[in-house]
C-alpha cells in the first residue's frame, strides 16, 4: 500500500479562459480517489493530463512509474479509462469491440468479460448504435474492466444514467474494489456516488485543489454546530469556521476543524451547544467551495 500509483506535482495548464493551477496529488496503490468538482472545475483536464492526452505546461506527472506524457504508451497499457464523453464505434458490435480490445491487452479476461455481459444484460452481437446511454456506459466499463487494469480512471461514468443503470455500475465498481492492488480515480459531480466507493476525496474548484484528504477524516472534521448564545453574548471564535448562518441568538456554524475541544470551547464562552450535526460529502463540498469563492471571487 506504500507504493505510489499516481503522482502529480505542481501541475499547471493554461487555456485562454481557464487555468489549472499547481495541482499536486499523490495516490497510493490500491486507493480509491473520489475526484469531486463542479462542471468546468478542471476534473477532465486533470484526467487528460494524467492520461498523457494533454501536455501540462508546468509540473511533473507520474502514472504507474511512467513519466507523462512521454511514457503514456506504457502507462496506458495498464490503465482502464471510461469517460462520460467517450463513445464506442456505433457501426460495430460489442463483440467486435471486445475482440479489438482483447487483441491489444494480453491481460484480457474473457470469462470475466462474459460474467460482466450477463451482469450488465448486454448482448455482444448488438451494434453500439442500438444501445441506450446506460448500456453504452456499461459496455465501455466492461471493456475497461475485463482488461484488468492496475489503474482505473473513471471520468463522470454515472452522469446521465437512470437509477437502475447507476446502481448496476456502482455495484460492479464496488465489486472491483475487492482487488486491493487496483487503484481507482473516480471523478464526478455526484457526491453520493463518490461517497459510496471512495476512501480518499479531492475537491477541485476553478482549476485548484481545495481539499485532498482521507474520506473518513474529512467527514469527521466537518460539522455543523447549532448554538444558543446568551443575551448579548458574542459568537465564540472557533477554529476553521467557514460559514455562519442562523440568527444572532441561534447561530449555526460550519467548521472544517471539528474535534471535541470545539464543544468545550463553545461552552467556555457561555454558548450552549444544541446539536453537532455531521455533514454529507455534498454539504462539505458546497460549503468548502462557497467559502473559498467568497474569499477569492473570480
Amino acid at each position: 500500500m506504500n507504493d505510489v500509483c499516481v503522482r502529480l506535482a505542481g501541475v499547471s495548464k493554461k487555456y485562454p479562459h481557464f487555468q489549472l493551477e499547481n495541482i499536486s496529488l499523490e495516490l497510493p496503490v490500491g486507493s480509491i480517489l473520489g475526484f469531486i468538482g463542479a462542471n468546468g472545475a478542471g476534473k477532465s483536464t486533470t484526467i487528460r493530463i494524467l492520461m498523457g492526452l494533454v501536455h501540462q505546461d508546468k509540473g511533473s506527472v507520474e502514472v504507474l512509474g511512467h513519466a507523462m506524457p512521454s511514457g503514456q504508451v506504457a502507462a496506458k497499457q495498464e490503465i482502464g479509462f471510461v469517460s462520460e464523453d467517450m463513445r464506442l464505434y456505433g457501426a460495430a458490435t460489442l463483440a467486435w469491440h471486445m475482440a479489438f480490445i482483447e487483441s491489444i491487452y494480453p491481460a484480457w479476461n474473457q470469462p470475466y468479460a462474459e460474467v460482466l455481459l450477463r451482469r450488465f444484460d448486454l448482448k455482444p452481437q448488438q451494434k453500439i448504435k442500438g444501445l441506450s446511454h446506460g448500456q453504452r456506459v456499461k459496455a465501455a466499463l466492461l471493456l475497461a474492466l475485463a482488461r484488468q487494469p492496475r489503474l482505473l480512471i473513471l471520468d463522470e461514468p454515472t452522469t446521465g444514467l437512470d437509477p437502475v443503470a447507476r446502481r448496476e455500475v456502482l455495484a460492479e465498481l464496488i465489486a472491483v474494489l475487492a482487488d486491493e492492488e487496483r487503484t481507482i480515480l473516480f471523478s464526478s459531480h455526484n457526491t453520493l456516488d463518490v461517497e459510496q466507493i471512495s476512501d480518499r476525496i479531492a475537491f477541485i474548484d476553478r482549476g485548484r485543489i481545495i481539499a485532498f484528504d482521507d474520506k473518513e477524516a474529512l467527514l469527521d472534521r466537518w460539522r455543523r454546530l447549532r448554538l444558543v448564545l446568551p443575551p448579548r453574548g458574542a459568537l465564540p471564535q472557533l477554529p476553521g469556521i467557514v460559514e455562519v448562518g442562523g440568527s444572532d441568538r441561534l447561530p449555526v456554524l460550519t467548521t472544517s476543524q471539528f474535534d471535541a475541544r470545539v464543544v468545550s470551547l463553545c461552552q467556555d464562552r457561555g454558548a450552549t451547544v444544541q446539536a453537532v450535526d455531521p455533514m454529507t460529502l455534498e454539504e462539505i463540498f458546497v460549503a468548502n467551495v462557497q467559502s473559498r469563492r467568497e474569499l477569492q471571487p473570480a
Binding site: 492520461m51 492526452l53 504508451v73 464523453d85 467517450m86 463513445r87
Partner: peptide, 17 residues
C-alpha cells in the same frame, strides 16, 4: 465529432502512432 477519439486515445497508443 462522434467522440470515439477518446476511446482510441485511451489505448496504448501515442499521438505519433
Amino acid at each position: 465529432k462522434d467522440q470515439t477519439l477518446a476511446f482510441v486515445m485511451s489505448l496504448p497508443v501515442s499521438w505519433r502512432e
